[in-house]
Amino acid sequence: TQLADLKTLARQLHEAYLRHFHLSKAKARIFLAGKTSTPPFVIHDLDTLQQAQQILATHMQGDEKDGLVSALQERETESRLFRCCQHTSVETVTQLTEFAKAVPGFANLDLNDQVTLLKYGVHEAFFTLLASCMNKDGLLVAHGKGFITREFLKSLRRPFSDLLEPKFQFAMCFNALQLDDSDLALFVAAIICCGDRPGLANVSHIEFIQESIIHALQLHLQANHPDNTFLFPKLLQKLADLRQLVTEHAQLVQDIKKTQDTSLHPLLQEIYKDMY
């Protein structure tokens, strides 16, 4: 019975993941391989960034709130791209919130604990999902309609040039594990339902949920990747790497906010405030 329950949990989380995240890894890989009728528009310098404004805006008619379009109306390149990053973060946080609610048991937790789990988990989950949109040369943007090269991002002035490079480095190691969307669904759920976030009231309730997810993940990986014996411990190590990545990211965002003339979305402000 327990085995059947864990399989059901894996299936439920996979379904919730496909329902709430618009760009699955499977879809992203098709875009990245250029196997779509309209390949992504490549942004590799200031000119192509300007052109992206027109091209992607045409694709996005009726979607006035799209971050890329509004951000491209800003004057300075770095500020524009920083706003694009923020827009993607905010969009992913809303998707992650809906996904979290679909994790069995999550919605019954104390509301303040739900907030704490999201506050500390969403960026770790975001960088995990972002890896699906990255290859060694760049990053898919605007729902797969655009592709920004890693070199262009690296060529921006500091500190903006430091924003995405660590995420590329993480993504290259993480993508080498060759997880699919069904594995990622369990991994992202394990990130969110984590019993050792600061300030949780009902730790045992969260640990109970977390244990089922981790157990389901272990069984699922055995079935889905029978030849990769050490995949499960390798993934657990990635949880620690993600925590370090987010700590550094939060520091960098605070530095950008302090030293650059740029604003931070209110949702991101509340997440970063008193985080670490």
Binding site: E91, T94, L111, N112, V115, H265, P266, E270, K273
Partner: peptide, 20 residues
């Protein structure tokens, strides 16, 4: 609770759009 107004709102409403 006041510190995390938007997260509370997102958790309590379904798919509430967050304007940038």
């Amino acid at each position: 609770k006041e510190k995390h107004k938007i997260l509370h709102r997102l958790l309590q409403n379904s798919t509430s759009p967050v304007d940038l």
